[in-house]
């Protein structure tokens, strides 16, 4: 190998190691933490060799012994279920509203549709803190505070713009001739959307919904302000490890690992399904 190429290859490899290390190290660190007992966690210098324990996981998922004996659902599991309901509901609602909206914005001749699309995107510009206090006041007044409906609605600020923007660009990529063919064939807009466009958009819808789900799942601020004891999501559950008298690092790490799992699985799934090969064969 020529020296220049060798140097180039080494530099690229080094950059990759640095890049991957930067992103993966925190995950490895917190994973190690979740397997340590309290003494190993606080030991200095940090221990890389230790005898792993599943104590933190069992306490997170199964709850403390006292709770188990009383037959109560462990708190963390309730947070998980809450998050499932909130993020699942938010994504379903966003799909129901966002997919037709994206189609209309991509294809119809509505005047000012670019501005409308931009307005949806602008929901993501401002920090959530800007809207959260007015929302808190409104929610407490109209009874949406600490309700699943309230949480699902608030998460539309996260999910709806994502679904609309991802789907809009996906719909715009579908050759217009296919829709024109459907129109000439006598299909109504609804039949065109249902029988022609949506089946072709499977990968786009899947990636839009998964991304929206991950963003919704990872959100902390809405749960912090708008959710009470009944609807607290899993991100709040992680914070519960910070108690009045101590921080349960091990529990926090285990809770963080478990709550990150759906996102990680989704990301791997997304990677496989984001390809847009479905239009192949439709047009030359």
């Amino acid at each position: 190998m020529k020296p220049v190429k060798l140097a180039e290859g080494t530099a690229v490899a080094l950059a990759q190691v640095l890049f991957i290390g930067f992103f993966v190290f925190p995950i490895i660190w917190i994973f190690m933490m979740s397997l340590k007992n309290f003494r190993d966690i606080i030991s200095y210098p940090p221990k890389f060799l230790f005898s792993p324990t599943l104590q933190n996981y069992s306490e997170t998922i199964l709850g403390a012994e006292g709770a188990l004996r009383a037959g109560e659902l462990p708190e963390y599991v309730r947070f998980l279920i809450n998050s499932m309901i909130i993020s699942g509901g938010a994504v379903c609602l966003a799909a129901l509203l966002g997919v037709p909206a994206a189609y209309a914005l991509a294809r119809s001749g509505i005047p000012g549709r670019k501005h409308i699309a931009f307005t949806f995107l602008s929901f993501r510009f401002a920090p959530e803190l800007m809207v959260i206090l007015p929302m808190y006041l409104i929610y407490t007044q109209i009874g949406l505070y600490d309700t699943y409906l309230g949480m699902v609605l608030s998460h539309q600020l996260i999910c709806l713009p994502l679904v609309i923007w991802i789907m809009m660009s996906f719909f715009q990529d579908i050759p217009i001739e296919i829709e024109e063919a459907a129109r000439v064939d006598g299909a109504s807009i609804l039949l065109t959307l249902r029988a022609v466009i949506l089946p072709m958009s499977g990968p786009g819808i899947a990636s839009a919904l998964i991304i929206a789900f991950i963003f919704s799942w990872n959100n902390l601020i809405f749960g912090l302000v708008l959710a009470g004891p009944n609807t607290r999501p899993v991100t709040m559950g992680i914070l519960q490890a910070m108690t009045f008298d101590q921080i349960k690092w091990g529990l926090m790490a285990a809770a963080a690992m478990v709550s990150a799992l759906p996102g990680m699985i989704a990301a791997i799934y997304l990677q496989r399904h984001i390809t847009r090969g479905l239009t192949m064969g439709a047009v030359k």
Partner: peptide
């Protein structure tokens, strides 16, 4: 009925479903 330059078939449908789409509509 129109025949397009780039065929404009519905990729997720079979040949029979493509041919039958105007009837279905």
């Amino acid at each position: 009925a129109m025949v397009f330059q780039n065929y404009s078939l519905y990729p997720q449908m079979t040949v029979a479903q493509n041919i039958g789409f105007p009837l279905r509509a």
